[in-house]
């Protein structure tokens, strides 16, 4: 970890950012999705087999994310061109953001950057107001699945119900 404090922790306001999401230069970031939960899935690299499984898995779980109106954003230090080819080969339709230049800047701000120059395999769930509600750092070679994300989204939904009631 280059950030001595490690992965961003619940309760903190998520650092704002936008990153290229398409080869056309379209920029995307969590602030564009205020009012909805946002899942930031940092991952080391396109194409490595574990990553492929993790991002493919999140795509296959898209209907479940939709039930929570949650937005999933994948983030790695790969270029938009790599992202595009990777997304096409795995049928990934949610945005993969290129934390490419300055390299890893967003990952660093979230405490999710590794000394080897890749993003860590880290999950960060933001509430609809943009505050971190859950974060999880997985060993780079372990696909963390999605159960922790959905537990966090359940908790968010329950909290909102209490506030509304």
């Amino acid at each position: 970890m280059s950030d001595p404090n490690g992965l961003i922790q619940p309760g903190r306001t998520a650092p704002g950012f936008t990153l290229p999401a398409t080869p056309d230069g379209d920029l995307l970031g969590p602030e564009q999705f205020r009012g909805r939960p946002v899942v930031l899935a940092f991952y080391p690299a396109d194409w490595s087999p574990v990553c492929g499984d993790q991002m493919s898995l999140y795509q296959s779980a898209a209907p479940v994310f939709a039930q929570y109106q949650a937005v999933v954003l994948g983030v790695s230090v790969d270029s938009i061109w790599s992202h595009r080819a990777f997304a096409e080969s795995r049928g990934i339709e949610f945005p993969l953001l290129a934390d490419f230049e300055p390299k890893g800047e967003v990952a660093r701000r979230y405490g999710a950057y590794m000394p080897n120059g890749e993003a860590a395999r880290a999950l960060v769930v933001l509430d609809p107001a943009g505050k971190v509600t859950w974060s999880y750092l997985s060993p780079p070679d372990v696909n963390p699945g999605a159960d922790g994300i959905f537990d966090a989204l359940d908790q968010l939904a329950a909290d909102r119900k209490v506030m509304a009631g």
């Binding site: 499984d53 993790q54 898995l57 779980a61 479940v64 372990v142 696909n143 963390p144 699945g145 999605a146 159960d147 959905f150």
Partner: peptide
């Protein structure tokens, strides 16, 4: 499965 932690 996805709620149980199926990861591939």
């Amino acid at each position: 499965g996805i709620r149980s932690g199926v990861n591939g």
